[in-house]
Design a protein around this nucleic acid. Sequence first.
DNA 1: GTATTTGCAAATATTTTGCACAAAC
DNA 2: GTTTGTGCAAAATATTTGCAAATAC
Lengths: 129, 129
Amino acid sequence: MEATRTKHFRKRDAILSCIKGTHVHPSADWVYAQLKPQIPDLSIGTVYRNLALFKEQGAIVSLGTVQGVERFDGNTEPHVHFICTGCGRVDDLPKMEVPQAFCSEAASQTGGCVECCQLTFTGRCSQCL
Amino acid sequence: MEATRTKHFRKRDAILSCIKGTHVHPSADWVYAQLKPQIPDLSIGTVYRNLALFKEQGAIVSLGTVQGVERFDGNTEPHVHFICTGCGRVDDLPKMEVPQAFCSEAASQTGGCVECCQLTFTGRCSQCL
DNA sequence: GTATTTGCAAATATTTTGCACAAAC
DNA sequence: GTTTGTGCAAAATATTTGCAAATAC
């Protein structure tokens, strides 16, 4: 029953694979559009529900909203992003990193518990200029 | 006509003063609620319109959305924030700063134009723990 | 069988916008 | 008088949710 197994694999898995397998830092709608041709009975509500779940579990992180739409990242390692205000693309800046010392320093200053650190540059990408 | 002048000063000015005069990194709705008692005929649409204008002019910056609501900062100098995922408060971490070198390094890596840099820590504040 | 996952559509919440009127200059 | 700013309510948009049916175990 290989076919059956393939056809009936959980949509949750497909959604997680999709976001883990891309570097575009997608929105819920992008994930939906990407999977819909392969999984015609997928619904957008399911995508939202599962992304919320993954986020809660820590399997993905939210990068906040870009142009009114929430964007996600399957790479949960802290790293640096560049967001283009023109086209909305989000890129990694893999050669840069946040000094480890920053996180502990932040924790001591807030008196609370620091879970996540994001360094984000905003501007216009070369294509939009 | 001091009273008249006070009463009729432009709502735009009131909105800008409000956001410049607080450290809570407010939402549109917070600004509206803050000003409404003093300016009873203020409308929420006006607040949104003016915040969008200030942002475009560079008089304020957006910190992105926290718990689904966009937050603003009247302090446009680059500085470091801590966002509590429990209560949604946004605090400055004034003792920390982003190394100047980071911005030029980011610019050279993107090949584009970097306009803004935000270093944000997320977690739980001491009150929420 | 029970528990979990999902489709669907309606509900919610935030933000934006059209338009007529008011205020500023 | 012309331009700019605003109130109001409706519209647009993204996201969440209730519930019954489908799927997994």
